[in-house]
Amino acid sequence: MNPGPTTPAFSRRQFLRDGLRLSAVAGAAGLAGAMAGRTQAQTTVWQIDPAKCVRCGNCATKCVLEQSAVKCVHAFDICGYCQLCTGYFEPEPNELTTAAENQQCPTAAIKRTFVEDPYYEYEIDENLCIGCAKCVEGCTRFGNGSLYLQIRHDRCLNCNECAIARTCPGDAFRRVPVTHPYLLKTDTH
């Protein structure tokens, strides 16, 4: 092609392009300005509101991690230290021993230790806990609700859209400031 006649076309395109670019930059700047008021310096992380949790078992199965980042945590100062812990034992345990048939945790992640008559302490082994909430339901139904689910931030990948949150029947997941990443129980009786 002859370059002569194309030159004006070229510059016309150039002009158009410059104009579009300018407006795009202005748009981006405008967007940044508009959103600046709504942005916050601190980022947020996902957490479970224990008051809304319905113990459905989704936390164990829906997390993108092979072993869920949701774990059962134990509020020791709410616990009654019961001998017959309904979080630890099957609903109608055979005996009150640590034998497999009496425990309800599918991965035996609750450790039961004798403190003194008649008190026992229960601790969660987070490497084994899968966040299935079976113990949480037992503890909430009969006991003080000292066992409850929380997202553990040393494991959570903080997905943009939490895969558990979108299927949570209790609508219990929400984003919380990274500076206060846990929603711990502060129950009164």
Binding site: V73, F76, I78, C79, G80, E116, H153, N158, V178, T186
Partner: peptide, 27 residues
């Protein structure tokens, strides 16, 4: 302002463990 129902008083002076809260990735 809240009063939490007191856990048992252990005669042997057993101390309650603290619930850990691993930090999220720092800002």
């Amino acid at each position: 302002a809240e009063h939490r129902f007191p856990p048992p008083e252990f005669e042997a002076g057993h101390k309650l463990p603290i619930t850990t809260t691993p930090e999220a990735r720092a800002l």
